[in-house]
Each structure stands twice: as structure tokens, then as C-alpha cells.
Amino acid sequence: MSETGPLMEIRDLARSFGGGRTIFGTKKPQLTAVRGVSLDLTKGETLGIVGESGCGKSTLARMLVGLDRPTRGAIRLDGEDLSASGTQALARRVQYVFQDPVSSLNPRQTIRAILEAPMRHLLGLGKDQRKARLETLIEDVNLRPEFLDRYPHEFSGGQAQRIGIARALAAEPDVVVLDEPVSALDVSVQAQVLNLLDRLKRDRGLTYVFISHDLAVVESVATRVAVMYFGEIVETAPARDLFRAPLHPYTDLLIRSAPVPNRKRQATSGDSGELPDPYDPPPGCPFAPRCPRAEADCREAMPPLEPRDRGGAHRAACFHPLAD
């Protein structure tokens, strides 16, 4: 891979659930949560992924870290297809920070055992090496060394999330996928965790995939944003460009309906807020029934995700984008 090429390439990634037939030969219903997502991730960036609940964000995140196998598609890191290499290859280079910090930690293990597990199983480090790395790791997330011999239930939500972040970093990954990492925390604690993530990214040269429904958080941390709707990417752009001038009507709806600092909240009258039936998806653009700009062609074919600016950085899957 060239130095200017993407660190991670996601190509036509899809995940379906159900399907097949019963023992009596009747067809089982099938739900497709992710519908052919293609994205590039550049080393050192923070890619924010946003969308309403049920749009497929968390399913995509689970596939990126190997917790779920894609129905089709590929995940390549430095050109190597990790989706075909099994979960061990993905776990070594891509780590996950969960939404609920306390429930993501094994209540029967000490923090020391939790943090040593990836060092032992993924890096193959000996006892002395693990001890030295533990001291540095616990200090990096602003926790005291005596916390290592305590159990998860003894910590607050903010402290538990710091432990979750430390566990992700223990494997020395290239990419960290953060799935709603601050949504379960108080606002004051959110700021502390976000500042910690920013410092760790700079100090360790990390690359983040930051998944959230909170546009204010994404606007503050992301360098680039991908918007998901009904399992597909409908718009991608540098964060500043997307929030200043969205092209897809769905992105515009999200921004206008969200309480974003320094921006007046606007009315979203006329939007039903109803998602299409996932077991019977409509033809064409799935947002068409909610879109004020939809025309006949929108209901006949899904618009491709195409560049809409001269440099090609701002892409939208829309036949009638807002710039027109």
C-alpha cells in the first residue's frame, strides 16, 4: 500500500439476518441491516458515523471488529482482507469501545486480568512485559495503579469507560471503533472522556471510527462524517463541510432536528419519522417517502454515492441534492 492510500478499505459490506426456509419448505423472513457499505478510512482521522436508531451503525461497527461476520463484502487493512482471515486478525488490529462501560467488563475479573487478557492472547507477552505495559496503560487513561486489583462494580461510569478504553489500547491496535462511547455518561464526564480520547489519539497515532446519534459530539470530534440511513451510506464529507452545507435531505433533517450548540433548532414539520419496513424494503431511495424533494426517479432506483464537489470529498447518494 502506498503511503497516501487508505488504512482501512470497506467494500460492499452487508449483513443480513434470517432468511432460508423452514423444515416445511416455507420461506423465512430476511432482514438486511447493512446494505453494501463502502468506505475508506485514512490513517490518523476520526470518521464519525451518524444516523437514527436502527440505521445499521452498530451492526457495521460489530463487523469492523470481527464480532459479526459480514454476509458479503470485504474489510481490508493495509491491503490485507481481514474479513476473510477470521476474528483473530481483526481483533489484533481493530479494537472496540462499548457503549455501556460497566456491563462490557467481566464482573468476575479484576481490572488487571481484564487488561492483561489482550496482551496475553493477542500480543503473546510474558509476565514481566505485561507488568511494564500495565503501569504505562493505567497512567495513560488517568487512573491510579491501585485500581488494577479492584473489580468493575467498584467504579463509576466514567472510570469504567476509561478502563474500557485501556482494554482496547492494550492490544496496540491501528484502529479503534467507538460505539456511542459517551452516551451513557453524564455531560461533565463526557467532556473528560472525549478529551482523553483526543489526547490518546495524538500521543499514540490512532485512527478512530466514532459512531454516535449525537451530532453535537460528532461535530466536535470528527474530521470526516458518514451519514447512514436504512443500512446505507447516503452522504460523506469533511465534518466542517457537511455541517455547514449538507447535500442529502436526510442529513439536513438530522441537523435541523438535533440540538446542536450555536445553531438554532429548526422545525421539521411534514416528516413522518417512520422508517421503511425492513422486511419489505421499497424500491429506489428508502428515504423517498419522507423526502420533500423526492420525484419519480427517486422511487425507481437507489441513487449512487457520487462526488458532488470538485475535489470529490463531498459525496451524496441523491438524484436531487440540496445544492441543486
Rank of each mutant, 00 (worst) to 15 (best):
R204G: 09
R62L: 13
Y279T: 15
K201D: 14
D149W: 08
V37A: 08
T22L: 08
R256L: 10
A239V: 14
L137N: 05
P101Q: 06
I211W: 07
C298A: 12
A171Q: 04
A216Q: 00
G19M: 12
G157A: 13
R92Y: 05
R150K: 10
K131A: 15
I233C: 04
Q88W: 12
Y208K: 00
T32N: 05
E219T: 09
L31C: 12
R244T: 09
A258Q: 13
P304S: 11
G36E: 03
M302F: 15
P289I: 01
R76I: 01
K264E: 12
S58V: 03
A113C: 07
I163R: 00
S156V: 04
G126I: 05
P238C: 11
T136I: 15
G273E: 08
A222Y: 04
P307K: 02
Q129V: 08
P282M: 13
P286Y: 07
L215P: 03
Q161I: 10
R133P: 01
P70G: 05
A33M: 08
L200E: 07
M302C: 13
K264R: 13
Q30I: 12
E172L: 06
R167K: 09
A113W: 10
T268V: 11
D324Y: 13
R15F: 04
L169D: 00
K264M: 14
A166M: 07
P282Q: 14
R130C: 11
M63C: 15
S58G: 04
I255Y: 00
M119L: 14
P173N: 14
R93I: 01
K127E: 04
T110Y: 06
S257Y: 05
E146A: 13
A160S: 07
A171Y: 07
L305W: 08
L31E: 09
R120E: 11
L41T: 01
D214I: 02
G19Q: 12
Y151I: 06
P276V: 09
A245D: 15
L196T: 08
